[in-house]
């Protein structure tokens, strides 16, 4: 390599075909997997492609996907967030308690919950950046803390772990359609969360590929020290990402609350791993610096389709987790292989 000069490069370079370039995109693996899952259940079960079937798996994909996309951004930025699942419960419970117990205006309560979620996200980010501890440990702490607070504080205030009487709150009907409404689209009953999901995918993709902060997300995940040296605001970028995952948790919290008119202390617990799995299946590198929002969304679609497909196929729904685990391992192996190729073969 030492005697390489510019004119030699072209001669040694093999033309990169369009197909190879496409294969190097982070979301390709998940797109292929999603297609396989889609075709399989479409053929194997009769309900999967029905109007009702499509609506069901779209809706369930969207509730996972909103947070999965935010978690993917954070993972591209080189960090983890395990507290996203409980954040769904925390924000839902907060609105529930503030309105049903304290009689706070529901619009105000929704905004208060958003501010609180963003604040918790910011605390996560600042703790990770200032202590230098792995985000895995910091957010594992937040995860358990929130899980405990969700149940204990709710019980202490309203004497039970589930919110009741949401529908009686003034103005409930005014805000319910925004988060929990649904509409009919080509015969299928589609929830508002699907629109939010599409919006989140669009915003995240735009942010990642077309804006300065998006450039910084890739940079802080790929090489934090180098990013700092060239003047990327590393702290702000990372804290912003943690706030984004918390904000996504809040959004799904609102969707859950206004869809079912109740949440309880266990809402969202356990989902944090599913978000991470979706991001990894979607092509995000665990080490950061590589991935896509669309990939994570496809990961969420795989999850949603499999979850409903297994029901339609009359299989034991416990197979879902076994399937997810195997998908995750497969995805990590494929990602590693793709990354190695992307780094050397040009």
């Amino acid at each position: 390599m030492s005697t390489t000069t510019a004119p030699d490069v072209d001669e040694r370079m093999v033309a990169t075909s369009r197909a190879t370039k496409t294969l190097r995109r982070p979301e390709v693996g998940s797109a292929i997997a999603a297609l396989i899952v889609f075709v399989f259940f479409s053929v194997y079960t009769s309900e999967f492609l029905s109007d009702q079937g499509v609506g069901t798996w779209l809706n369930s994909s969207s509730r996972i996907g909103i947070v999965a996309v935010a978690v993917a951004l954070l993972m591209i930025g080189g960090e983890f967030d395990l507290s996203t699942g409980t954040m769904v419960g925390t924000s839902g419970l907060m609105v529930g308690v503030l309105t049903t117990h304290y009689g706070l205006n529901i619009f105000v309560a929704v905004v208060v919950a958003l501010v609180a979620a963003l604040a918790i996200g910011a605390v996560n980010g600042i703790l990770v950046m200032k202590t230098g501890l792995p985000s895995f440990i910091v957010t594992l702490g937040t995860f358990f803390a929130l899980q405990g607070v969700n149940v204990a504080l709710t019980k202490a205030i309203i004497g039970q772990v589930a919110i009741q009487g949401m529908k009686l709150v003034p103005s409930y009907d005014a805000i319910q359609p925004i988060f929990g409404g649904s509409f009919t689209f080509v015969g299928a009953s589609v929830d508002m969360s699907v629109l939010w999901f599409i919006g989140v995918i669009g915003a995240a993709t735009w942010l990642l590929l077309r804006t300065r902060p998006g450039n910084w997300v890739f940079a802080v995940g790929g090489a934090q020290q180098s990013s700092r040296q060239v003047g990327v605001p590393v702290l702000a970028t990372k804290v912003g990402l943690f706030m984004a995952t918390a904000g996504a948790g809040w959004l799904v919290g609102m969707v859950t609350l206004f869809k079912s008119s109740t949440v309880n202390g266990a809402t969202g617990v356990g989902d944090e791993f599913i978000f991470i799995i979706c991001a990894v299946v979607g092509g995000c590198l665990l080490t950061g610096g590589f991935g896509s929002a669309i990939g994570a969304a496809l990961g969420a679609m795989i999850y949603g389709m499999t979850q409903q497909g297994i029901v339609y196929a009359n299989w034991d729904s416990d197979w879902l987790k076994a399937f997810l685990g195997i998908m995750l391992l497969g995805a990590v192996l494929v990602n590693n292989w793709v990354r190695k190729r992307a780094e050397v073969s040009r």
Binding site: W216, G222, A223, V230
Partner: peptide, 14 residues
């Protein structure tokens, strides 16, 4: 101070 996985032009203007 470059990010290896990012394209040359993104690194240039990072």
């Amino acid at each position: 101070a470059v990010v290896p996985l990012m394209p040359v032009w993104r690194n240039f203007f990072l």
